[in-house]
Amino acid sequence: QVALSRTQVCGILREELFQGDAFHQSDTHIFIIMGASGDLAKKKIYPTIWWLFRDGLLPENTFIVGYARSRLTVADIRKQSEPFFKATPEEKLKLEDFFARNSYVAGQYDDAASYQRLNSHMNALHLGSQANRLFYLALPPTVYEAVTKNIHESCMSQIGWNRIIVEKPFGRDLQSSDRLSNHISSLFREDQIYRIDHYLGKEMVQNLMVLRFANRIFGPIWNRDNIACVILTFKEPFGTEGRGGYFDEFGIIRDVMQNHLLQMLCLVAMEKPASTNSDDVRDEKVKVLKCISEVQANNVVLGQYVGNPDGEGEATKGYLDDPTVPRGSTTATFAAVVLYVENERWDGVPFILRCGKALNERKAEVRLQFHDVAGDIFHQQCKRNELVIRVQPNEAVYTKMMTKKPGMFFNPEESELDLTYGNRYKNVKLPDAYERLILDVFCGSQMHFVRSDELREAWRIFTPLLHQIELEKPKPIPYIYGSRGPTEADELMKRVGFQYEGTYKWVNPHKL
């Protein structure tokens, strides 16, 4: 086992960053958080920038500027975001240094004079007029057009580079997404736009490419001749908990499936790229999406959770019991969808996408189930092999396979070949997804960000279904809070070829 401390991990990262040409360590950078008073800024962006600063992973002359409508001070920003920093008493001095680099400007999102004030403020910072500028839009999409237009007109660096990070949702359907994309691309070049999907920053999602293309053993079996089906799962054990009003506007397909799960599907299904260059990788992902037809209604199961009468606390409440959810809402909190990649490698292999709230566990994984062994000599005792990439929690890679049961006879039983990170790298604290992705933006690497043509294809696949749901308002199937979801989803999976045995229990190697 390799035991690495946080300091050692960050030392390795620093070495990698400083050796590259793309990370300008000594240049002045300004990180501007648009929507600095909001939840995302408070819980994710400010803490992430602090962790990067604490670990010495930001360029040395980096300033952080918050911008929002609320009249706040840096002290206010500190008060609301610091509880999420997880700072230790030993880091007190470092924390003071961090907040000394912070400033805040209040202004409207659609007022040109406010942006001119913001620009004057940035120019007044040390070497601010020639600094590289990175704008993070932690804002609702309704203000994107006004904000990007004003940034472009008043706040661009004339000497350094300018980059803009856009948070999902990128529209509600193909038409609104196209409108937003066309607007942003009329102001910024594609190499300046970073559409963030934080799932692409997760260690195991990034590991998929290495697993596939750096190991000879997987190449020959990664196709329709050997793989019976692919299941991509995202499960949350909690409901909307008072935030249903926002969720109800989008629903589970827009929230998770059309982005996170579809991105994971691309990494499983794509061909080997010409290189690890950002556009070479994204070219292959677009090719996969172009091979997927629009979702067919007979390959869809929609569910909505109801309270568990035997549960406790939140578990007793259904989705419609959330006071922020519109009365009688038919918005799905669970969806199972089957897609097919219609190309030579994957023809006929079902890709089953499942996601839901208020389920029995927290889990995100990719599961490849292989065909049955031909010419069975073990009297149907063999179960199908599976390769599982567990994204969260407890990152893991393992192969479910058959071995001989101890004893006199040739009785096979299920076991696993474990390729888990935790076994080799004991207690290594890896940077989280937002840390990686923000560092990628500083480096100018777009590999783990969504390109406009990729986004367009993703919406093309799901828009007809979303429009049909909005028009017909089908009643989702009720499922109990804390269950596996509607049984109809299991029946759909069985119908397209997935075999669920229920006889195997994964042993978490992190707890051995």
Rank of each mutant, 00 (worst) to 15 (best):
N298K: 12
A358L: 02
S275Q: 05
K505E: 13
M408R: 06
E365H: 02
N343A: 04
D376H: 06
K505D: 14
R327E: 07
V281N: 03
R282I: 04
G422E: 08
V450K: 15
R495L: 06
L437S: 15
T503A: 13
E470G: 06
E488D: 09
W506A: 15
P476E: 00
L302C: 07
M264L: 15
L455Y: 03
A364L: 09
M270Q: 04
I480R: 12
E361C: 15
P509N: 14
S445Y: 12
N299K: 05
R456T: 11
E344R: 11
T503W: 13
Q380P: 06
Q263H: 15
C291H: 07
I480M: 13
P273D: 02
H260L: 15
I352K: 00
R354E: 13
L492G: 01
Q468P: 04
G303V: 02
V391F: 14
P309R: 11
T503L: 12
S293H: 09
F442T: 07
T399F: 07
R354W: 07
T463Y: 11
R384T: 09
G348I: 01
G313F: 11
N411H: 05
T420D: 09
A336L: 08
Q296N: 08
R345I: 10
G313Y: 06
A458I: 12
Y504G: 12
H379R: 15
L267P: 08
W459D: 14
K429L: 14
S452H: 04
V366G: 01
D322Y: 07
G303H: 01
S278D: 13
V366I: 13
W506Q: 12
V450I: 15
S275V: 04
N259R: 12
K405Y: 10
E491W: 07
A489N: 02
V301T: 04
Y340A: 06
A336G: 06
L353E: 01
Y340L: 04
D322R: 05
E501M: 06
Y481S: 08
D283P: 06
L261G: 03
D347K: 13
E501P: 11
I469W: 08
E491Y: 07
V325L: 09
D418C: 03
Y340V: 04
K405I: 15
T503G: 11
N343Y: 00
I292S: 02
P476L: 03
N299R: 08
T276E: 04
T403V: 03
K357P: 02
F351H: 00
P350E: 01
Q380R: 11
K511M: 15
K429H: 12
R327S: 13
P323D: 04
R282P: 03
D310Q: 07
V507Q: 07
V295C: 11
G375H: 09
M447W: 12
T316H: 04
V441C: 03
Y504C: 12
L439N: 04
L437A: 15
K429C: 15
G422Y: 08
Y479D: 02
N385M: 07
K429S: 13
I377E: 04
L261N: 02
N308E: 09
E395C: 13
L466E: 06
V286A: 14
W459Y: 12
E472V: 09
H371Y: 10
S452P: 02
S415V: 14
C291I: 04
Q468D: 13
N308D: 12
T487I: 09
V441E: 00
F442R: 00
A315S: 10
S275D: 02
C291M: 11
V281K: 02
A315Y: 10
A396K: 13
V286P: 01
Q392M: 13
G407I: 09
L261F: 05
V338D: 02
M493E: 13
E344D: 14
N411K: 11
Y500L: 15
K317D: 09
R495D: 10
R384G: 05
V300H: 04
